[in-house]
Design a protein around this nucleic acid. Structure first.
Length: 349
DNA sequence: CATACGTGGTC
DNA sequence: TGACCAAGTAT
């Protein structure tokens, strides 16, 4: 059994030297000099980092805080502007909840992020992990973060073979027992940095790990097979049709998708429902009665729980055609979610 | 507890 | 090349 009193100290010492630089992060040296993180930026980064890598988040974060420097700025933004800026980052419910949360902070908390874990948990898009991350990292309160990194580190440190998600309560208990009252914010970032860099999913760098000596999995040689996970279900393949209509002035016929469900609230091309490939290719109802040309090739895209094959139809229509056309000066292909941008790219090739 | 919910990088 | 994986949340 590792000495649980010494472990957090060892990790904090490692973090003092190896903390990675991130645009939202106040590093250990600055923090010791009394500089506190901006809760708005910590919250923003934590929402973006949900199921998303630091490398991907970095540029999105910079664009968001440059465009909306404070939570009040964000709360006052147009929905379509925020969704467009989020396009390509995925999990679009995060963007919808980002706006709801910003407006709740302004309306219910006088524009100031609450430090309290329970209060944070009441806000849209903030669950157990993010509430703990914001209260610890932004306010240096002692809360235990349990994300994918910490789960992996704990499973290895204590050689826990119970598969996820059943192992979560035990992993949380282990993580909580290690969380120190001194520098809990730096500790939270340190244990996640450790999981992201040293204690990685494949071929962990045990030789340079600050916790190599107390690590039970390393002693047992099981680090490569932990954490165990319950097998995933196979992804079905679905297919459908999308319609790209371009007016004489170059404007495109687009629609804002319904708030709920896949790509909710995002810009997209009109099209058919997407059905299993065991069924015939659906054509849906074309948005205009015109001469549609089927483009060569197809769009292939994989979502979290299914593969999609899209047939893309294109038409050039007269200037006086009625509909929600977006003019070239207002159309940014980067406002489209990736699957829709792939259809656009096919029409341009 | 299971499922829906994106995308890009990696091996 | 396809499966796995990433600082999870909502229902």
């Amino acid at each position: 059994m590792p000495d649980t009193d010494a472990l957090p100290r060892v990790l904090l010492d490692w973090y003092d030297v190896h903390a990675r630089d991130m645009p939202w992060r106040v590093g250990p040296v600055q923090r010791k000099a009394g500089i506190q993180p901006d809760p708005y930026r910590i919250w923003m980064s934590e929402i973006m980092l949900q199921q998303t890598t630091v490398v991907t988040v970095r540029d999105y974060f910079q664009r968001f805080v440059a465009r909306w420097p404070t939570v009040r700025d964000l709360a006052a933004a147009q929905d379509a502007d925020v969704m467009g800026e989020w396009a390509g980052l995925g999990y679009y419910a995060r963007a919808r909840n980002l706006l709801k949360c910003a407006r709740a902070v302004v309306d219910e908390h006088d524009g100031v992020f609450p430090a309290d874990h329970a209060a944070l948990l009441q806000l849209p898009g903030i669950g157990p992990y993010t509430a703990a991350a914001v209260s610890s990292i932004a306010f240096d309160l002692r809360h235990t973060v349990l994300d994918g990194n910490v789960e992996r580190v704990m499973a290895r440190l204590y050689d826990i073979h119970t598969p996820l998600p059943a192992a979560k309560p035990e992993l949380m208990a282990r993580a909580d027992a290690l969380t120190p009252s001194d520098r809990p914010g730096d500790y939270a970032q340190a244990v996640m940095d450790l999981g992201a860099t040293i204690c990685s999913p494949k071929s962990p760098a045990c030789g340079i790990c600050p916790w190599r000596d107390p690590c039970a999995a390393r002693a047992a040689g099981t680090q490569g097979e932990l954490p165990k996970k319950t097998p995933k279900k196979p992804k079905p393949v679905r297919h459908g049709t999308v319609y790209l209509a371009q007016r004489a002035d170059g404007a495109w016929l687009l629609e804002t998708r319904p708030e709920k469900g896949l790509l909710g609230g995002m810009l997209g091309w009109p099209g058919s429902p997407w059905v299993d490939t065991s069924e015939p290719l659906p054509h849906g109802t074309p948005p205009l009665d015109t001469d549609w040309r089927t483009l060569a090739g197809e769009v292939r895209h994989t979502f979290t729980h299914f593969h999609l094959i899209l047939t893309v139809k294109h038409a050039t229509v007269p200037q006086d055609t009625a509909g929600d056309f977006v003019t070239p000066d207002q159309f940014r292909p980067s406002d489209l979610p990736t699957v829709m941008r792939k259809a656009f790219d096919l029409s341009q090739s």
